[in-house]
Simulated assay, not measured.
Amino acid sequence: MNEYLNLAVVAFVSATILPLGSEVLFLYYLNDANLSASFLWLVACIFNTLGSVVNFWLGKYCRKFENSRWFYVKLDKLYYAERCFLRYGYWSLLFCWLPIIGDGISLIAGIFKTPLRLFIPLVFIGKSARYGVLLWGGGVVFT
């Protein structure tokens, strides 16, 4: 049971703007015959998606501070990000699983007030596919 909690915490934190990777731990736990591979997949998907929701909320509230001196994003860069996000649309949320870029996508989705009813399912699908590939690949490698 402790392994599932460890994976949940690592998957959650790795989806926020903090640098951490949950894939190695996920693959490590797949090698444990006492753990359910499908439950590991579900835990990783759910908590990694919840971590992206944290980025979403950070993005949603950072616009309140855009006129502050300490605001680290230049407005021209913010407008460029907005054009890119609007150009590719909500489907870009399927790529929130990508390292570094994915955190930015979820943050930008919050900045531009993407509805959560679209954000959560699309991010979950993308992250589920990534962990699914790891599950399939890990099963091939470790069996």
Results as ranks from 00 to 15, higher is better:
1 M>T: 11
4 Y>C: 00
5 L>F: 04
7 L>P: 02
8 A>I: 03
9 V>H: 05
10 V>D: 00
11 A>W: 02
11 A>N: 06
12 F>A: 00
12 F>S: 01
14 S>A: 09
16 T>N: 10
16 T>P: 14
17 I>N: 05
17 I>E: 10
19 P>L: 04
20 L>S: 03
21 G>Q: 03
25 L>R: 02
25 L>H: 07
26 F>S: 05
26 F>Q: 06
27 L>R: 01
27 L>H: 04
30 L>R: 04
30 L>D: 12
31 N>M: 05
31 N>F: 06
32 D>E: 14
32 D>K: 13
33 A>D: 14
38 S>N: 13
38 S>Y: 13
40 L>K: 01
41 W>A: 04
42 L>R: 03
42 L>F: 01
42 L>T: 04
43 V>S: 04
44 A>K: 02
47 F>I: 03
50 L>M: 03
51 G>L: 07
53 V>W: 07
53 V>K: 02
54 V>F: 05
56 F>W: 12
56 F>P: 01
56 F>E: 08
56 F>M: 11
57 W>E: 14
57 W>D: 13
59 G>A: 08
60 K>T: 13
61 Y>Q: 11
61 Y>D: 12
62 C>A: 15
63 R>F: 14
64 K>L: 06
66 E>S: 11
68 S>T: 12
70 W>N: 06
71 F>W: 14
71 F>V: 10
71 F>N: 10
72 Y>N: 13
74 K>S: 09
74 K>E: 15
76 D>T: 12
77 K>A: 15
78 L>W: 14
79 Y>S: 12
80 Y>D: 14
80 Y>G: 12
81 A>K: 04
81 A>I: 09
87 R>Q: 15
90 Y>H: 12
93 L>V: 06
95 F>I: 03
96 C>V: 00
97 W>D: 06
99 P>T: 10
100 I>D: 04
103 D>S: 08
104 G>Y: 13
105 I>M: 02
107 L>V: 06
111 I>D: 09
113 K>Q: 06
116 L>Y: 09
117 R>E: 10
117 R>F: 06
117 R>N: 11
118 L>C: 13
118 L>D: 13
119 F>Q: 06
120 I>T: 09
121 P>W: 11
122 L>N: 08
123 V>I: 10
126 G>Q: 02
126 G>H: 05
127 K>T: 01
128 S>Q: 11
131 Y>C: 04
131 Y>W: 00
131 Y>P: 13
133 V>H: 04
133 V>T: 00
133 V>Q: 00
135 L>I: 02
138 G>L: 08
138 G>A: 05
140 V>D: 07
140 V>A: 09
140 V>K: 07
141 V>M: 11
141 V>D: 11
